[in-house]
């Protein structure tokens, strides 16, 4: 029995050593290495002023100004909702479970087109969602955000925080027709040409993303511990049930908005590659599933 164990362990160790060397060489990436799948034909123009008619600002709805929040009780709720939205760590501390704020993804306080703007979402709810397999209200949608993207617990639909967030969303959407899908809603639309490759994604990440989001996706913190640039994976980031954990969804967000301020500069393939690179890393468990399913089951969001 002992000799059998010894033999098995030797074989296994040898096997692991062989495998280990193979994996090690593949993991060493020169961040400036160019792989054939990563080379995209680029436009070459004589001046450095390139007209890219990607967005036409006249087409997007513009929410009311911050200074135009009314001075009544509704306005107070709007202000509270805005505070919770921009500084969830402080104003939503009862519910948030990681290091993110709502504005980490819903850019410009929920106003930015193609960054999940609130003004485009409010009028579409209640709506049938595949994730919930039923028709959900706007409050329930926000609850899902707290449970998954903020890795926390959901406020009840009658809590002051929830009412404040809904009031803020409604105020942002002042003038938006109900039930109409507005331009700027959601994220970008992308076409997939080949299965996304996480090694290409690592190259894109190291060249474009690591500067702000950290070499290991840990983000960067202020001196007081709050995050300046949000973590993309790890314990302080969104969990496995979040929408950003779906490769397709993350790619559409990245394509439209990242690097920050330079939306629509990545190609569709680069966005998909870097999204899958983000997807393969560890993040907190899916709260909908059991511990064992999180360990041994299929990780959600891998389609596409």
């Amino acid at each position: 029995m002992n000799s059998l164990l010894a033999k098995t362990s030797v074989v296994l160790t040898g096997f692991t050593l062989v495998l280990g060397t193979v994996v090690l060489s593949a993991a060493e990436i020169d961040p400036l290495e160019v792989r054939p799948t990563l080379v995209q034909p680029a436009v070459s123009l004589p001046t450095n002023l390139v007209t890219v008619p990607v967005v036409n600002p006249g087409e997007f709805f513009m929410p009311p100004n911050f200074d135009d929040i009314p001075d009544d009780k509704t306005g107070d709720m709007v202000r509270l909702g805005r505070n919770i939205f921009t500084n969830t760590q402080e104003y939503g501390a009862r519910y948030v479970g990681n290091g993110l704020n709502c504005v980490s993804c819903h850019l410009s306080e929920g106003r930015q087109p193609y960054a999940g703007p609130l003004w485009a979402a409010v009028g579409m709810f209640p709506i049938s969602r595949n994730k919930n397999r039923r028709v959900v209200t706007y409050e329930e949608r926000i609850q899902d955000c707290f449970k998954y993207s903020l890795d926390g617990i959901a406020p009840t639909v009658d809590s002051p925080e929830m009412i404040a967030l809904v009031t803020y969303s409604k105020w942002l959407a002042t003038g938006v027709p109900i039930g109409v899908s507005m331009p700027g809603r959601g994220f970008a639309t992308i076409k997939k040409t080949h299965d996304p490759d996480s090694i290409d994604g690592e190259i894109v990440y190291r060249n474009k993303c690591a500067m702000c989001h950290g070499d290991n996706g840990e983000g960067q913190k202020h001196a007081d511990g709050s995050y300046m640039f949000p973590p993309l994976w790890g314990l302080d980031s969104f969990n496995r049930a979040a929408g950003m954990n779906k490769v397709k969804t993350a790619a559409t967000f990245i394509k439209a908005n990242m690097p920050l301020g330079s939306g629509y500069t990545l190609s569709d393939d680069e966005a998909l590659d870097v999204a899958v690179y983000m997807w393969i890393h560890f993040r907190p468990d899916d709260p909908r599933q059991s511990f064992l399913m999180n360990r041994f089951g299929a990780k959600p969001g891998g389609g596409g």
């Binding site: 007209t51 890219v52 036409n56 006249g58 060249n207 629509y264």
Partner: peptide
């Protein structure tokens, strides 16, 4: 006129 967005494609 409708303003256009100028973005530099240089990486």
């Amino acid at each position: 006129k409708t303003p256009r967005i100028y973005k530099d494609l240089t990486i």
